[in-house]
Amino acid sequence: MSLIEFNDVSFSYPNGFLAVDQVSFTIESGENVAIVGQNGAGKTTTVKMINGLIKPTSGKVYVNGKDTADYTTATLSREAGYVFQNPDDQIFHNTVRKEIEYGPRMLGFDEEKVQDLTQQAAHLARVEDYLEENPYNLPLSVRKFVTIASVLAMDTEILIFDEPTAGQDVAGLETLQHLLQQLQAMGKTAITITHDMDFVKTNFKKIFVMANKKLLRQVSPKALFQDRQLLEQAMLTQPFIMQLAEEIGLEDDILTIEDFVHAFSKNY
């Protein structure tokens, strides 16, 4: 059985608003997946069903063999950690250290393990220098990394990041890239929602494309950015370099500046 399995899953809010419409997919242990699609496509609602923050109104979600309908969010949060889109929905301690320690302590780990996990998480999220600071004295982009660290410290097999690229500078994007590589090396399963197509093209092999509450396709970056119809359906745009390559008549599979220079010098 796959680590995560969605079978024909829909979710409607109590007021009848349909947010996710008949979505089916599987994610294997150790995969690194991006979810893309416009605002309101159903991305956040879908991932919240993985750690049980919400339960499907029809269909089945299995995580590590558990039918999420039969388990509490507290139990499921041991399988999947979810980093909220807005860090301020999540932060409630007055130092970064306490914020990060809270999760592993709640899971009942002994003190030594709590400290180890806290240290490792702070290191991975590059917030070690801020451990004694009040999170609310830190800029939003750093607070985001504080929430990432606090979820990493829970040592779950699955990690879900909701728009971690939002508002990040060059250094922040590098930290995220490094973090995803480390998680891969550790055998963790990561799911990242993002609008940043440049980040997508360099960091993921598998992309879930969502639009209008449905999962349209699971594709590679090249397949996604070459498929005009799919891009249009999901209201996505090609990376800049690919647009330029096409407009001047180079091959249509150019994703990086190196690809571009190579193809250009071959032709001209």
Binding site: Q38, G167, H195, L236
Partner: peptide, 11 residues
């Protein structure tokens, strides 16, 4: 940073 959480179209 008015577009940090917006998709490319909305940005």
């Amino acid at each position: 940073e008015p577009t940090s959480q917006l998709d490319p179209q909305e940005s």
